[in-house]
Simulated assay, not measured.
Amino acid sequence: MKEVGQRLKSLREGIKLSQVKMAGILGVQQSAINRFETGKSTPSAETLIKYADYFDVSLDYIFARTDRPQGKEYRYEPKLLKEKTDQNEQIREFVEMCFDPKSPVSEKLKAILIRLMMEEQK
Rank of each mutant, 00 (worst) to 15 (best):
R65F: 06
P43Y: 02
S58N: 03
F99K: 04
I112R: 15
Y74L: 03
D60A: 07
F63S: 11
L48C: 11
P69R: 13
F94Y: 09
A52Y: 01
I62V: 15
I62S: 09
V95Q: 01
I62M: 10
T85E: 12
R65V: 10
V105C: 04
Q30K: 09
E77M: 08
A111M: 04
V28T: 08
Y76I: 05
E73I: 11
K108L: 13
L81E: 14
Q90L: 12
I62L: 15
A32G: 01
L48S: 06
F94K: 07
F36H: 03
D100F: 10
K79V: 05
S41T: 13
K110I: 05
Y76G: 14
G71E: 03
T42N: 12
F55H: 13
D60T: 10
I62Y: 06
T42I: 06
F94M: 13
E37Q: 02
K102C: 07
V95Y: 01
E107C: 08
T66V: 12
E96K: 06
G27Y: 00
A111W: 00
K79E: 14
I49K: 06
T85S: 09
G27D: 06
V57Y: 08
E107D: 11
F55Q: 12
I91E: 02
K72P: 00
Y54F: 15
I49S: 03
C98S: 05
L113D: 03
A45E: 14
M97G: 04
S31D: 07
R75W: 01
F55A: 11
K108E: 15
D100I: 03
F55Y: 14
V28C: 02
M97I: 08
Y54H: 09
T38P: 01
R92A: 13
Y76D: 09
S41D: 12
K102F: 10
A45P: 05
R92I: 14
E46K: 15
D100W: 04
E107K: 15
P69F: 12
Q70F: 05
D56W: 00
I62C: 11
S44A: 15
R75K: 09
S41Q: 07
K102P: 02
Q90S: 08
Q90I: 10
P101G: 04
K40L: 04
Y54S: 09
R65G: 02
G71F: 12
Q87I: 15
K84T: 15
Y51L: 06
V105E: 13
I33S: 00
P78M: 04
Y51V: 04
F63H: 14
S31I: 01
F63G: 09
D86L: 15
S103Y: 07
E83F: 11
R68K: 13
D60V: 15
V95L: 05
V28Q: 01
F99N: 02
I49V: 11
Y61I: 13
D60G: 03
V28P: 00
F55E: 05
K110Y: 02
E96P: 00
E73V: 13
S44Y: 03
D67V: 07
E77S: 13
Q90D: 05
P69C: 12
D100P: 08
Q29Y: 02
Q29R: 06
G71A: 10
S106V: 09
D100A: 03
L80C: 05
M97P: 00
T66N: 01
R68E: 08
S58Y: 10
E89V: 11
L109V: 00
P101D: 02
V57R: 10
E46Q: 13
L80E: 14
F55P: 03
V57I: 07
M97A: 13
F36Q: 01
E96Q: 10
L48A: 08
Q90K: 13
N34Q: 06
A52T: 01
